[in-house]
Amino acid sequence: MPENTASNTGSAPVVGTARVKRGMAEMLKGGVIMDVVNAEQAKIAEDAGAVAVMALERVPADIRAQGGVSRMSDPDMIDGIIEAVSIPVMAKARIGHFVEAQILQSLGVDYVDESEVLTPADYANHIDKWAFTVPFVCGATNLGEALRRITEGAAMIRSKGEAGTGDVSNATTHMRKIRQEIRRLSSLPADELYVAAKELQAPYELVKEVAESGKLPVVLFTAGGIATPADAAMMMQLGAEGVFVGSGIFKAGNPAQRAAAIVKATTFHDDPDVLAKVSRGLGEAMVGINVDEIPQPHRLAERGW
């Protein structure tokens, strides 16, 4: 596993190490990261108890409705959000668009999401994430995809789900799949891990590490279709270590109240009494689209590989 190559033996501080990048995600665990499109929404998210915000130009539901090419956000908008809140700010770059990522790093964002929600910029290669000081989160639909992103330097993984739908079914599919494949690896005898690595299309050393530890070497969040406190709690019970909520908050009737309810539900995901209490009186959830009704070419989860 390539680490940051800077020497760490002397007394000089070292930035951008794998430990610092992955550690940042460890600090977000048990928390909710919310999509916001302006400073005002960022403040609502912070007030509600978000552990971080994701700055983007249009939430996935609008990207889906409006179509066209979707790109990195305007630096002015990202600056405005960084100014507005004290919690970490993440922002999205297109898959493979390493220059958008360079710009986001220069702006001082705390995490870059190399995201299938935006239009891919490269249909063969993802970004070489080891080349950056800023850490990256990437989406995955299965274990092989997660391990390939980690090999490229991702310091955090989120299950993809299907963004902008309010339909949680793909998030559950992807989370169950990743966890199931990890459990399977842990059950294999050592001599079968070589073929398992081949099948997963991931490096043997990483496959062996996952088999031995029973978990990914980075934090695993969930994303894509989470719209209610119950959705967030279910994903946590399925093994997510935290939750990204995109369109689910600001496309709903009462964003501030819903955001706060999802934060509480994520912390007390295993306590139905708390979940019942926080689920009351939230008003309209986002309208939503059934993933089954979306034609195959418009499914965002199928971007990336």
Partner: peptide
């Protein structure tokens, strides 16, 4: 002082 050393790109390891 919160976030005194800077943003995430400034996070570091040191003795």
């Amino acid at each position: 002082r919160r976030n005194a050393f800077g943003r995430q790109v400034d996070s570091f390891e040191a003795p």
